[in-house]
Design a binder for these strands. Structure first.
Length: 420
DNA sequence: TCTGGGGTCCTAGGACCC
DNA sequence: TCTGGGGTCCTAGGACCC
């Protein structure tokens, strides 16, 4: 059996933990640059605030209904997530952290008679330890556990837990789940399935395998197996190393100059380099892109990307900045309002397997030491205090975050203060 | 004024190799 | 008369996830 634990309206719930006055009040959290709504409390959902709506189109609604609006604070959410996962570890020998707010628990070796009772205990414990409300779905495959979780959110609000313990309950659940709401079915596949007469998961379960194979490829085939109660998706207890790392962000405001786009890009390259060092990999290729804002109809539009193969694989910040600037020289064109830039590093090899040229190896030990020192200092200082010149000191391209809550749990100067 | 960011997997087709 | 077969690597594009 698999359990899926999912934090309810996670980002909103995180904000509430440190601000009890938000209880019962509609809360929303916005994406980067305070762009779109990406998390909504129940009250906000009741008001009809849709997932992904641009914040500026809902401003009146927010004001009229006293909605608490927050910029996203990933430092805070990441730390709360860690605490939730640590609480879950106590219940099972193994768990898979699936995303910032979800985890699969391996219940196969557990000798519990009543998994529903276990689910309820998990839920209560997480709430008590972290303040975060969660929903628990238990079933015989990951896909069905996902479905049970969703079913619990919609139909079993009192307990917030569902264990698909028998065929009857399983069928009720399958029938109540629209194809579009199945894990692994996105908008395109949903449309295709609807067109061919499959409305809910129970109907899909009975679809001819060959038809699924042809139309939804092997992914669909695997999904069908899972729906039938046979696990087809492997456990991933250890997060695998990344195959590509991308850092890309829209600017706080539009930018015209190569200088400023360059500062942003250099800063993103520095983030990629740090992440590479953390997983002890070096990248062999980079891809850099720039683009204008497609929503601005009156602006001239432009997007271009370029991929470079590096002469020697690297995870050095200085090197990656150097090559990203070369790439930028190719893609950047004068005369546009730029809105976004980004860099992806890819084709990794382990740090200790880099093939140097005859003359490249000189100085690598020194460079490594420099990076170790910079990383250590930046980590202990809690911000990127030590930077490369190319990152500049411009603020124009920086993210817009006008409603950011404090990093209550990760920065000593922002810790919650209680007056008595 | 204002519209997110970071990933994975699968397939098809072309280039190239022996 | 008759014009291979099997493989890898790369890229682009499309689907999905949170």
């Amino acid at each position: 059996m698999y359990a899926l634990i999912d934090c309810n309206n996670f980002y909103c719930s995180c904000e509430r933990v440190f601000n009890p006055s938000l209880e019962k009040r509609p809360v929303v959290v916005l994406s980067n640059n305070d762009g779109c709504v990406i998390s909504r409390s129940e009250e906000a959902k009741q008001l009809g605030v849709r997932m992904g709506t641009p914040a500026f189109t809902s401003e009146t609604c927010f004001q009229q209904n006293n909605v608490a609006v927050y910029s996203s604070n990933y430092t805070l959410y990441g730390d709360i997530s860690d605490r939730v996962m640590k609480t879950l570890v106590d219940f099972v020998p193994r768990l898979e952290v699936y995303s910032i707010d979800e985890a699969f628990l391996d219940l196969h070796d557990l000798r519990y008679q009543d998994l529903l009772a276990l689910a309820i205990r998990i839920r209560e414990t997480v709430k008590q330890h972290t303040g975060i409300p969660v929903t628990v779905g238990i079933a015989s495959t990951k896909t069905l556990a996902k479905m049970a979780n969703r079913f619990a959110k919609k139909k079993k609000k009192e307990t917030g837990c569902v264990w698909a313990a028998n065929q009857e309950l399983l069928n009720e659940m399958l029938e109540a789940t629209d194809v579009a709401d199945i894990w692994g079915i996105g908008p395109q596949y949903a449309k295709l399935l609807m067109k061919n007469g499959f409305k809910n998961a129970l109907q899909l379960l009975r679809a001819p395998e060959e038809w699924i194979r042809v139309n939804l490829s092997v992914v669909g085939q695997r999904l069908l197996t899972e729906l039938k109660g046979i696990p087809a998706i492997e456990w991933e207890f250890e997060p695998p190393d990344k195959k590509a790392i991308c850092t890309a962000r829209g600017f706080g405001q539009l930018i015209k100059t190569r200088q400023e786009v360059g500062e942003a890009l250099a800063s993103y390259a520095a983030i990629c380099a740090l992440k590479l060092r953390e997983q002890k990999s070096c990248a062999s290729k980079i891809e850099v892109f720039v683009e204008t804002n497609a929503f601005r109809r009156d602006d001239k539009q432009y997007r271009r990307s370029i991929r470079l193969t590096l002469p020697v694989s690297t995870n050095s910040t200085a090197e990656l900045i150097k090559y990203s600037m070369q790439a930028l020289d190719i893609v950047y064109k004068e005369g546009y309002n730029y809105h976004k830039t980004g860099i992806t590093v890819m084709d990794f090899i382990p740090e200790d397997k880099v093939q140097y040229g005859l003359y490249d190896a000189a100085g690598t030990d020194k460079a490594k030491l420099i990076h170790q020192t910079i990383d250590k200092l930046n980590k202990s200082l809690g911000k990127d205090l030590l930077r490369f010149a190319k990152q500049g000191y411009g603020t124009k391209w920086k993210l817009k975050q006008t409603k950011l809550s404090p990093c209550y749990t990760t920065r000593i100067d922002e810790i919650l203060k209680v007056k008595i």
